[in-house]
Design a protein around this nucleic acid. Sequence first.
DNA 1: GTTGACTTGATTGTTAACAATCCTGCCGAA
DNA 2: TTCGGCAGGATTGTTAACAATCAAGTCAAC
Lengths: 242, 242
Amino acid sequence: MTLPGPNREQLSTAEEVAEEQIVERIFEAVIEQRLPPGTKLSESALCEAFGVGRMRIRRSLLLLASREVVELHSNRGAFVARPTAVQAREVFEARLAIEPNVARMVANRATAQDIAVLARHLELESQAHASGNRRDAIRLSGQFHTMLAQIAGNGVMLRMIKELITRTSLIIGIYGAPGVTNCRDDEHADLIDALRKADAERASEIMAAHLRHIEERVDLTARPGVGVDLISVFGGRGARGA
Amino acid sequence: MTLPGPNREQLSTAEEVAEEQIVERIFEAVIEQRLPPGTKLSESALCEAFGVGRMRIRRSLLLLASREVVELHSNRGAFVARPTAVQAREVFEARLAIEPNVARMVANRATAQDIAVLARHLELESQAHASGNRRDAIRLSGQFHTMLAQIAGNGVMLRMIKELITRTSLIIGIYGAPGVTNCRDDEHADLIDALRKADAERASEIMAAHLRHIEERVDLTARPGVGVDLISVFGGRGARGA
DNA sequence: GTTGACTTGATTGTTAACAATCCTGCCGAA
DNA sequence: TTCGGCAGGATTGTTAACAATCAAGTCAAC
């Protein structure tokens, strides 16, 4: 289950933080909703946070923008993306097109050990849910989908799904009711059950239903960003968190 | 059928070539196999070719690398990517997971006008094939798949498919028999037929079969790149040409 | 008191010079 | 003749200073 990501060779001197790591960490922060949509990502702040030069930060921001996780506004800076309702629909549609096939692939290929790993992960998810640890719950439920792509053994699709999951977190942050988490772990449990039985068709259907449930939990008719922008203008630095 | 691509706003001053355009043009050159796998993309040469500063070229190369269309080797420069056999399999698998769904979506959504546009495009394809215009034939057959994603109206999937098509051209350039074109236009014709009848299931199956045929036409057991590198060393600057 | 323009400060975008690395050709020794 | 080391040149990577743009706050006029 090695990461099939591109050129792992140039990780360079372990001391320095490569831009790939910066991208990864910002991805995670967005998934965990520690960086809400619209948050300004100032270069100098990021330079300090990661202890690297401005150039590396700019490269990282460009990469994040190419994944549509941040928006670059000319002469104004980088902001965490605020997907429109149209984009949100596209993201869900894309996930619905891709991930059921991933589930099918995993059902056909997964070893007993793979499934054991998934089951152990599900355990962590349930614990996080039970203990009300929202941030862990969100991260773990996203990781579950990522792990499926990893087990499927397709680096291309893994990269796509990572992007889609991250953007889904943004979408839920904008259009979702506050407090709802991204996935319900019982559906993950059903999926593991189908995988264990190598029932590809049922795994695919469970995944499709699962994604539809996630989509149903957001209200794309709500006016999104304008209000958020005003709020931030009025001093509510919802940036957030604790 | 407007391009759903991201931030079209900052196209800036028409005079300058935005990096998005540079990326697009390199994508096209790779698709048309004017830039064979392994070709060195030196910064200074690209600066001259596009008449822009080095910074913009570097940004473009970074974007291309993030799509795995070029490889960046530290202190050595940028090269047109040479997908490994493993990556090639992943690309085909991803296309097989995504594009049949695109075909399904198009079958459900396409207007008569959309289909007319596709039919007109197919006409051009056939002409290029008949007249032996290899470069046009390749470009047009790739565009056919892109147009489907456009009609499907999903910008996310459109971007993914563009990447996959471009990488497919690289794969065929490495593992394909010389002279074979990417797609057979008669299969495109079959697909249009199914779309016209709004037969989503058949459209999906035709697309799947089509992609499998493309995959069958390459020999992933052949040793890939080493030879290509030697060729370029021996003076064959196949980079393109006239 | 409110609206408008203006100035100031900060942030981003670009350019240019510098440093580091790698490839090429040359030379000498085995 | 062939192999290894050694400059020279070229290309990439980085840093720093500069220019341009935008946001905010101030002040004046209505």
